[in-house]
Amino acid sequence: MLYIRFHGNYSSPKTKQPYGIFVVIYHLYRDAKLLESDGKLYLDTKEWFEQNLPNPPFYDDNNSVNAVTWFKDGIKAPEMIIYLEPFFNIAKKYNVEIIKSISKELPGILIYEDEYQIGIVPHCANWER
């Protein structure tokens, strides 16, 4: 199994891991750096994911376990990655680097899994780029 994570080039002080693509694009939106049309695209894409990608339970308590999520390279994950295209486009338009990390092994301690993704508590950062 391969695990895939799309993330920025700056890290969360909480998890000590790079912020994932959802947060990186949210930061552009939060900081009012997006044109109105791109802000709407962000909100529409975010809403689609909220309706279609399960929300790991560790996010319900503000992620007290400091976990991060990775897509599983299985049958279902490619569909989710296709729906990330608007975020990739926004990042490119605003010159924000999005890095694709791949791990051939569990990239941490598994604490959550669904058909699309895993939630892990990282134990190291030896990812392929």
Rank of each mutant, 00 (worst) to 15 (best):
L43Y: 05
Q51A: 12
N89Y: 08
L28V: 00
I120F: 06
Y94N: 02
D44C: 02
I82N: 04
E97D: 03
E47M: 07
V65N: 08
Y26F: 14
G39D: 09
D60K: 12
H27L: 04
Y116K: 05
S64G: 05
L110V: 01
P57R: 05
K104G: 11
L35I: 05
Y42A: 02
G39F: 09
S64P: 11
T45L: 02
Y19C: 00
Y94D: 00
E85A: 14
I82M: 05
L41D: 09
T69I: 14
N89W: 05
P122M: 02
E36F: 12
L84N: 08
Y112F: 08
K92N: 12
N9L: 01
I21C: 03
T45R: 03
H123I: 15
L34W: 10
L53Y: 03
E97F: 00
N95Q: 11
F6G: 07
E115W: 01
D73S: 12
W70Y: 15
V65P: 01
D31T: 06
C124N: 15
Y19R: 07
K92G: 09
S12P: 03
Y112H: 03
H123T: 15
E47I: 02
E50K: 08
L34E: 10
T45S: 11
E36Q: 13
L106H: 14
P122Q: 04
K16F: 11
A77Q: 10
N66H: 13
I82A: 05
D60Y: 11
A125I: 09
V96K: 07
I120H: 04
Y10A: 02
N89I: 09
T69K: 04
E113F: 01
N9R: 03
Y26G: 01
I4Y: 02
P18D: 07
S11A: 13
Y83D: 08
F49K: 00
F6H: 14
M1S: 13
N63I: 05
E47L: 13
G119Q: 03
M80R: 11
T15S: 13
P56N: 07
Y83Q: 15
S11N: 14
D44L: 14
G108E: 11
N126H: 07
P107D: 12
F88H: 07
I25A: 00
D60F: 11
D73P: 01
E115C: 02
F87V: 04
G74F: 09
D44Y: 06
R5C: 08
S12D: 10
C124M: 10
H7S: 09
L43K: 14
E115H: 07
N55S: 12
D61I: 04
E50D: 13
K76S: 14
P54Y: 00
S12L: 00
I25F: 01
Y112C: 02
N126T: 08
W70A: 06
G119E: 03
P13Y: 08
V68P: 09
P86R: 04
I21F: 01
P78E: 07
F87M: 05
K76R: 11
G119F: 01
M1H: 12
F6D: 06
